[in-house]
Amino acid sequence: MPLLEIENLTVEFATVNGRFKAVDEVSLTCDRGEILAIVGESGSGKSVSMLALMGLLPWTAKVTADRMSFDGTDLRGLSGRQRRRIVGKNMAMIFQEPMSSLNPCFTVGFQIGEALKVHLGLDRAERRKRTIELLDLVGIPAPEARLKAFPHQLSGGMSQRVMIAMALACKPKLLIADEPTTALDVTIQAQILDLLVDLQREQGMALVLITHDMGVVAETAERVQVQYAGQKVEEQPVAGLFDDPHHPYTAALLAALPERATSRRLPSIPGVVPGQFDRPSGCLFSPRCRYTTERCRERVPHRQGAMAGFALCHYPLVQGRPIGHPAPNRIANAAEEPA
């Protein structure tokens, strides 16, 4: 049985202009000790689906799912108190902006110790000892001296290390990392990623890594789930995904990697993720897809099988060729000649 199992998760926000579906029937599983990457542009519902899992969405959000179980516990319909026994203990999360994610009024030692106090009931001396251990674990030099430091005295990379230490405090079974390196300097990004992967291996925990950086995915993940406009559009093991992407969106993301560029200018995906008011009626990616036909614009695609990476597409790609496409040879703006 997988550690985390989510089936048909939908998150809707009540807005002034009616309901907005940020996550649209997303399913997801993650095994113990596995690294799963969730990839997609901003606005594809990656963070929202994980925040929904943690119960951290504002009250304007309506969360529904056919199944949402963690470590054998059904998370649906849990009371706040019951959920808080899991969240922060067995399931922890770190965020994109480490500098603003730490409370400026409290010391590093206090903020890490708080989780230990609430979940494990450790006394002051035990908390101090464990906090020093944790700071050491995440590679913070002179951990004892850092206990009394305030967040404004730390750099971004240090803050993220503290966040990781805080998340690991109760030895969670699952760590969700929401774009943990996006706000950091490039040199620090690699350090933090290495740290996360090392810790994941050492602690044997599962890691869900939310990112929009395909480079990060290639370096760390075992399995990849691609999301677009709130929907899961493809899911594959990492090697397969990079070899043979089945959804045109995945293919376009990969084509935008500098390492894969064939011309001087990097190819890009025209347009932006649809919002509340410009949601297409058929395939959500159809306005931006190279292979779009009338059928794509009018009919919602079915999910393909495992062989085609569960792609949500009428014409899934196999070795770069759209299967079943009426005119595969007459495709507009081909990748070889980017706009």
Binding site: R83, V87, P104
Partner: peptide, 11 residues
């Protein structure tokens, strides 16, 4: 953000 962090700790 730090309030979200506090809630993510299960406080």
């Amino acid at each position: 953000d730090y309030i979200r962090t506090a809630r993510a700790k299960g406080l």
